[in-house]
């Protein structure tokens, strides 16, 4: 249990660090993955446990502190999306890569929509519609494509760090 806590605590910090530093160098500004969301959604689908919800909210709060002026936007959208994902994926999620990709893309879209709607109510003339089509949608598709790789990486990490050596 302690090892799992340390693993995910460390991974959370690494993902945040990656997101605000070297991860910014990937692709164009409009098609940059939100590395934190790309980590959280596959993690929840891989481990649909309740602690992931609050872990996601905590990472969202940290991301809020690093991005814009409105504390709580990412935290709210991550938590709401993860709750929705945890509740609904039980109905249709079958655990293969295709479903993982589709579910990640879909819930990324939902998360983006929640963030944009919140930001739109806080920032006049944000033009959230244009941002949704030009940034959120392509980024969500990218998240869907990368999700199987994330889950594969998480499974490998858990296998090598959490399971006792035989």
């Amino acid at each position: 249990m302690m090892r799992m806590f340390l693993l995910y605590f460390g991974l959370g910090i690494v993902v945040l660090w990656w997101h605000v530093t070297l991860g910014r160098a990937f692709l164009t500004p409009d098609l940059r993955p939100n590395w934190v969301l790309l980590y959280l959604l596959p993690l929840l689908l891989h481990r649909p446990e309740s602690w992931v919800l609050f872990y996601g909210a905590a990472l969202g709060l940290a991301l809020d502190g690093l991005s814009h002026l409105h504390t709580g936007v990412y935290a709210f959208s991550f938590l709401a999306t993860l709750v929705l994902a945890r509740t609904t994926t039980n109905w249709f999620y079958s655990g293969n890569s295709l479903f993982l990709g589709i579910a990640t893309a879909f819930f990324s879209l939902i998360s983006g929509l929640i963030s944009l709607l919140l930001l739109n109510s806080l920032e006049s003339e944000l033009g959230w519609g244009a941002i949704f089509w030009s940034i959120t949608l392509p980024t969500s598709v990218l998240h869907g494509l990368l999700a199987p790789v994330v889950v594969w990486g998480l499974a490998r990490l858990e296998h090598s760090l959490l399971e006792p050596a035989s």
């Binding site: 909210a57 709060l61 809020d64 502190g65 002026l69 409105h70 504390t71 709580g72 936007v73 935290a75 709210f76 938590l79 919140l118 806080l122």
Partner: peptide, 18 residues
Amino acid sequence: LLLVVFRDQKSPKDSILQ
């Protein structure tokens, strides 16, 4: 969290969290 978001909007100071 919603309260935090909209409280922040009303008093746009540098938040302690940030």
